[in-house]
Design a protein around this nucleic acid. Structure first.
Lengths: 180, 180
DNA sequence: TAATACGTACAGAATTTACTGTACAAAATA
DNA sequence: TATTTTGTACAGTAAATTCTGTACGTATTA
């Protein structure tokens, strides 16, 4: 049937585009495709349905779904009388975007920051010693300066992510009203 | 010498942390390390110096530098009397962060958006035909709705990135004053 | 103009990442 | 309790990415 063909074709096109996009989020291509599939699905899917639909192994579906769950992009839903696990896409794109930064970026920034704090403590301890060679002191002071700047920058990023987490960013960049 | 050891050790620690962090930007681990190296270097480096410092091939250095250049994280500098190309890190972290979204995210979003616009046009053309089956029409209308929502979301992301590009975001999340 | 130096394209090697199939633990059914 | 079903751990395989060395075009020096 001609019309179904068109529907199918347009979906595939969009799914490809979404999958492409997902690498921004550090997501594997097949998890990206899965996400696209869930985007269009009007009902939650089981691992077996995904496997069927994408022609991949069930194990792959399991790991892909897990990676999407980790990013809060997908959720498990419970349906009465259904024994299998069911998964559906999280419809709130904005929340999803915010969660991404709260989960991935925040973690990375925190780790980075604390490594730098620790290093800075070492350096400060070093220069506390009054009889270290002058060149060493200078070197240490320069590194401390660099680390301080970088830590300030991470602090800024953290404040930005705070505004995502609290959704205060929406006061600054509002979601446009739906035309009813 | 003991003190130099400490300086070196703290640097290595920070470089590792930075390299780790860089995968948020979709950057290869060795390009991440290179970035860390440049972070501490007090002078611009040549490809040969990088190669020396990281113990890698010159070709790798060339491609890593290029990927960092593409993201505006590094710049080529000209030094009088120096025949080789010299590269240095871009010191303005904020600009660098903004550029990342302007370059990578904007591109991805635009591609995604236009794929969706195109698909939507197809679907609208489909439902314009008065004698298509009812189930097909419903299906198409549902897809159109989903695409519209998603396009609105991309519009929001674009406005956010606009505020990065124009730095207006700094009115909302300000950079804290330096303590002098 | 000839000779040397520099950076990168390209192809192949090495490493990493992604995928599959089997096996098994946990849970549901009979 | 025995049987079946479901999801995932794990190990091996396939695929993709990253890295290296050679070769070569371009630019600089002699």
């Amino acid at each position: 049937m001609k019309e179904n063909e068109i529907l199918e074709r347009t979906r595939t096109m969009v799914i490809d585009a979404i999958a492409q996009n997902m690498n921004l989020y550090g997501i594997t291509p097949s998890a990206g495709r899965l996400y696209g599939l869930l985007f269009f699905s009007d009902k939650p899917l089981t691992l077996d349905e995904m496997k069927e639909e994408l022609g991949m192994s069930k194990t792959s579906m399991s790991t892909s779904v897990r990676s999407l769950l980790d990013l809060n992009m997908v959720e498990k839903v419970w349906v009465k009388g259904e024994r299998k696990d069911l998964y559906t896409i999280k419809e709130d794109w904005y929340q999803c975007f915010f969660d991404f930064f709260t989960i991935k970026w925040r973690t990375a920034i925190t780790m980075n920051s604390s490594a730098m704090e620790k290093s800075m403590a070492n350096l400060k301890e070093l220069i506390a010693d009054p009889n270290i060679p002058e060149d060493i002191r200078e070197h240490a002071l320069m590194d401390i300066k660099k680390l301080e700047e970088r830590i300030d920058y991470y602090d800024w990023q953290n404040r930005l992510i705070d505004s995502f987490e609290t959704k205060e960013i929406l006061n600054f960049i509002p979601i446009k009203d739906k035309k009813e």
